[in-house]
Amino acid sequence: MLIRDNSTPYTLERVEPAIQVAINVVNSEILNSSYRLVPVLRAYDNECNARNGTGLGDSGIFVDKTVYPTLTRFAYCQCHARQVISVIFRKFNWTEVILVVDTEHPQYQILGNSLRDGLQKENIHPHFLDLRLKDNIDKKIDYIRRHSRVVILVVSGDTLREFLLRCYELGHISTGEYVFLEILPFPFPGDYWGNHDWRRGDSRDPDAKKAYEVLLRISLFEPTSENWTNFTELVIREANKTYNFDFKGEQVNFYIGAFYDGVIRYGHLVKQALDLGIHYTDGYSLSRLCWNKTFTGGLPPRLQLRKPKLAQDRVQGNTYSDEIRCCMIRYQVLVLRRTASSLGNT
């Protein structure tokens, strides 16, 4: 099931071409000539024993496997953002933090609530602060000043810029007293995340650039492999051919790749099930073949699926990037490496 809404990163026009590319790979490279994957339209209820996969589920939906017993979520887990933050906090011995969340936008509210609950599991208990573009920003900054010098921002692009500009005007940027961490899973044009660049082509750009120099961004690791590059080119061509959809410079985002990996993994599961004498329609048995396994052959070099208390889901790394000054610290769970990277905002 896919939606048609051009304002979101997981629409039919973006995702279905990746699914078709994956089906072609499964049929030509994984299954033998007696079996083929074909897309069909059919309604399933929650009680059936059908094998299911999704590129969504990052916000905690579908987590209850008593309701979705045969579903694997290939979306990134938002829990890894708080693990990255936990590493940073232990590194610098920070204890107090303000979590600033833009509750005017559902995607930020969901991410903010997930992060708040997750940080508590890491023994970090943030002050939760609601911030919307229409709010009195001075009052919010005063609250921050009285409670912490470490600020985690889960806000829209316009709210972020106004907040940082006001901090700059009040002198909180130049002193070096404050740390500003932003959570932005991946870039996507339009209103879904908003414009998180400091540039607006207005008179405030010079001040905005200086304000953003203190901003540290936590986002999903962006693949750079030849495998990923080839995949994105195939998706862009297929989208244009099938739906006359032009990405227009937009990146092929993580959700699109997650749906592709889901189909590739399903193809391998069908092959494994047939070799073991398991019928390919036995969703429960196919799901259990996924649990606590690491696979190769998808878009990432290694794809780890795990079985927590009630779910089997993908493990995905996060990236921690220093926005203006061209430094990047890459986190894979708790492994820290330093690399050089130009982010283009010089």
Rank of each mutant, 00 (worst) to 15 (best):
Y35S: 12
Q304M: 11
E213W: 08
G201T: 03
I144C: 07
K248F: 06
W198G: 00
G201L: 02
C290F: 15
H172D: 14
Y178A: 01
L276P: 09
D275V: 04
N227P: 00
M328K: 09
W228G: 02
T346G: 14
L2Y: 06
P189D: 05
A273K: 12
N49I: 06
Y35D: 11
I218H: 11
R51F: 14
F247W: 10
V235L: 00
L129S: 01
Y255D: 04
L170C: 06
F74T: 02
D130E: 07
V154H: 01
G257N: 11
D202P: 06
A340I: 14
L99F: 00
S33Q: 12
I144E: 07
R73M: 03
E16C: 02
L215M: 07
L160N: 07
K307V: 00
T281Y: 15
L31M: 05
G118V: 02
I124K: 06
C79S: 10
G60A: 07
L289H: 06
D45K: 12
I152L: 14
A43Q: 15
D142V: 09
Y168S: 10
Q78W: 02
E323T: 12
E323L: 10
K248A: 12
Y284F: 11
D130K: 09
D142Y: 05
Y255C: 04
N230P: 00
V97K: 00
H172P: 02
V214L: 05
D130H: 09
L133F: 08
L216Y: 12
T346W: 15
F186G: 02
G112W: 00
A311N: 08
Q304N: 08
H279Q: 14
I3N: 09
R337F: 10
R51A: 14
N93M: 06
S174Q: 08
W193Y: 11
H147Y: 14
R42K: 13
E29P: 09
R116P: 00
G297M: 04
L289I: 12
Y178D: 02
L286G: 10
F89S: 01
P185S: 07
